[in-house]
């Protein structure tokens, strides 16, 4: 009977926390109680910016790594953050998970860092809520003060937005006081942070997602476990996308419905406008290719494989529906 330390920088509530708890329960169930987790929330052991070293050094045996904090070291995983057309949480997670599991090159790179990939999360599709402004087209972004993060934030800046730095938790006050016009976010975040009180429009970009965050393990610890225990961890990790996909889909749909009910204008960005954004994001795809290229990986090949995986799971979804709907 082994108890492993799990380090998570976020709180014990919300969709990611639900997914972590689900993962821990699955591990316990599959291993028949042989393996369990002692989860440390809120960065009690290490913050997001130190998660990679924290897990590699064994401060925690496992934990969540968010790739955007390690654009160099976690470059390969960062493929799931790219502003390519990839808006469906479940599809994105399945594609990322399969890519991470099937690539020997990525696994070797992680092993060199004393890490093992276990499973993946996502924050779901990136959208944008605004107060006193409405984004109906890409041209509308110009001149807006936007709280944006990651490659998506940079892409907004390229469209003429003025990027304002503040945490997602300060966005409510920022929107309320007019310090920012718009904030990048995810649908389920809106009710959690009460944005519906301060925004008057919400544009569904249907563009991409921040998907490069997931469960990793200390390789020494992983190697010291029995084959059965290792299998339990891997299988539990494999099950995350179905469960988190279900949670996010329910929460996101409910959030958008709630916004409509509250009279907030919900806009679906037209196809040709979205295409402009995807093209605008290509700068960041190129710089990503350069980064992985510098590490001896073929960015183009990875991207081709990733896109084909996105297509594969999109087809599966269209043909059979989501797993929780089957």
């Amino acid at each position: 009977q082994t108890t492993l330390f799990f380090g998570e920088a976020g709180p014990n509530r919300g969709s990611r926390a639900d997914a972590i708890n689900y993962f821990a329960d699955q591990v316990e169930e599959i291993s028949e109680g042989d393996l369990s987790f002692d989860i440390q929330w809120g960065g009690a052991l290490f913050k997001a910016g130190a998660a990679r070293q924290g897990i590699a050094d064994g401060v925690a045996d496992a934990g969540t790594i968010i790739a955007v904090y390690f654009p160099q070291e976690m470059a390969a995983y960062g493929i799931a953050d790219l502003p390519i057309q990839n808006p469906d949480p479940w599809v994105g997670m399945k594609a990322t998970d399969e890519l991470m599991r099937s690539s020997d090159q990525i696994q070797q790179n992680l092993a060199d860092q004393n890490l093992v990939y276990i499973g993946t999360f996502t924050t779901s599709a990136v959208h944008i809520g605004c107060k006193g402004a409405t984004i109906n087209s890409v041209d509308d972004i110009e001149g807006l003060k936007v709280r944006g993060v990651g490659a998506y934030g940079n892409a907004f800046a390229d469209q003429g937005a003025n990027l304002v730095s503040m945490s997602i938790y300060d966005a409510y006050q920022g929107l309320d006081s007019g310090l920012i016009d718009c904030s990048q976010g995810y649908s389920y975040v809106v009710p959690a942070l009460q944005w519906q009180e301060v925004i008057d429009s919400y544009t569904l970009l249907n563009w991409g997602q921040v998907g490069a965050l997931g469960v990793f393990m200390n390789k020494d610890m992983f190697d010291s476990l029995s084959a059965d225990q290792q299998d339990a961890l891997m299988e539990a990790g494999r099950r995350i996308p179905d469960e988190l996909g279900r949670i996010l889909s329910t929460d996101n749909d409910a959030a958008v419905q709630m916004m409509r009910d509250q009279g907030i204008e919900v806009i679906e960005l037209p196809e040709e406008e979205r295409q402009k954004l995807v093209e605008a994001g290509s700068t960041y795809v190129d710089s990503w290719k350069e980064t992985v290229g510098g590490m001896g990986m073929d960015g183009d090949a990875m991207l081709t494989e990733y896109r084909s995986l996105i297509d594969k799971y999109t087809e599966e979804r269209d043909a059979q529906g989501y797993p929780w709907e089957r």
């Binding site: 654009p71 160099q72 070291e73 990651g150 490659a151 940079n154 800046a157 990027l163 710089s287």
Partner: peptide, 18 residues
């Protein structure tokens, strides 16, 4: 160890200037 690995790996902060 941290300083050495930051120099060796070429780690950077994601952002507009990296």
């Amino acid at each position: 160890r941290e300083a050495a690995s930051a120099i060796e790996s070429g780690g950077f902060f994601f952002g507009q200037l990296n």
